[in-house]
């Protein structure tokens, strides 16, 4: 089977050609996914840090819930977001359905539990180390959460990357709430689904290779950033 070789060759020529449609799709993929990851971090980091750093009734249940929500099926999230933003749904008046906004909402719902659950683990481990020292210094609850998040910042970059990986590869939710509309809501994954349904398997595979390359570039960029930050954080 020469499908893979052909796909890689196609992928390379797609990238080298700088096809306008492809660039548009890549751009939207990144815009939607990165927006969702940023929103997820804004919501998930404090939640995860709070669960990781505080003792409170129901903490074990909260931990289990966060871990379980990591397995939210994207299609279910897509359906819920569709029903919420449908013209006959509660948020229909916003007109977000079949726009990138609804896709960002859906991916945020998918990624937030991942960020929160992994943050919980990272922060809890760090807090185990810091707890006595913090108590001795008289660190207050808010300062504790902020200090733990700050001190765990490099581990949390990896957490954000895990969320990015999940979101950028996700198709089930965005195809329902975005509608895979050409030039409006078509992203890499929905384009791959479309080409597969057209039977253009080589092209679909090539797009998959491009998606993988994007993920590699983003990961490499974040890791390079991290290395630079580690070097310069103390300058």
């Amino acid at each position: 089977m020469d499908g893979f070789g052909a796909a890689l060759a196609d992928a390379l020529s797609l990238i080298l050609a700088g096809d306008a449609d492809l660039l548009e799709i890549i751009g939207l993929s990144l815009r939607v996914t990165l927006s969702a990851v940023v929103l997820s971090c804004l919501i998930g980091l404090p939640i995860g840090a709070a669960v990781g750093a505080f003792r409170f009734p129901g903490r074990a249940a909260a931990t289990v819930a966060l871990n379980a929500l990591m397995g939210l099926p994207p299609v279910v999230v897509g359906l819920i977001v569709y029903l919420a933003f449908s013209a006959s749904g509660p948020f229909g008046v916003l007109g977000w359905l079949y726009t990138p906004k609804a896709m960002i909402v859906a991916q945020t719902i998918i990624v937030t539990p991942i960020v929160a659950a992994l943050t919980r683990q990272v922060v809890e481990d760090l807090h185990r180390e810091y707890a006595e020292q913090f108590a001795s210094l008289g660190v207050g609850p808010m300062e504790r959460v902020l200090a733990l998040l700050w001190d765990a910042r490099f581990s949390l970059l990896t957490v954000a990357l895990a969320g990015f990986g999940r979101a950028v590869a996700e198709v089930g939710a965005v195809i329902i709430v975005g509608g895979n509309i050409n030039h409006v809501t078509r992203v890499m994954t929905t384009a791959i689904a479309l080409e597969t349904s057209k039977g253009n398997l080589e092209l679909a595979l090539a797009l998959g290779a491009v998606l993988l390359a994007i993920a590699l570039v983003v990961n490499a960029a974040v890791m390079a950033l991290r290395a630079a930050a580690v070097r310069s954080a103390y300058a």
Binding site: A87, S88, G92, L97, Y98, G179, V184
Partner: peptide, 19 residues
């Protein structure tokens, strides 16, 4: 024109929701 291409059953359902 923004086309949402789904099965006819789902297309009708979506239209019934006003989408």
């Amino acid at each position: 024109v923004r086309v949402v291409a789904v099965g006819t059953g789902q297309a009708i359902k979506n239209a019934e929701n006003g989408d």
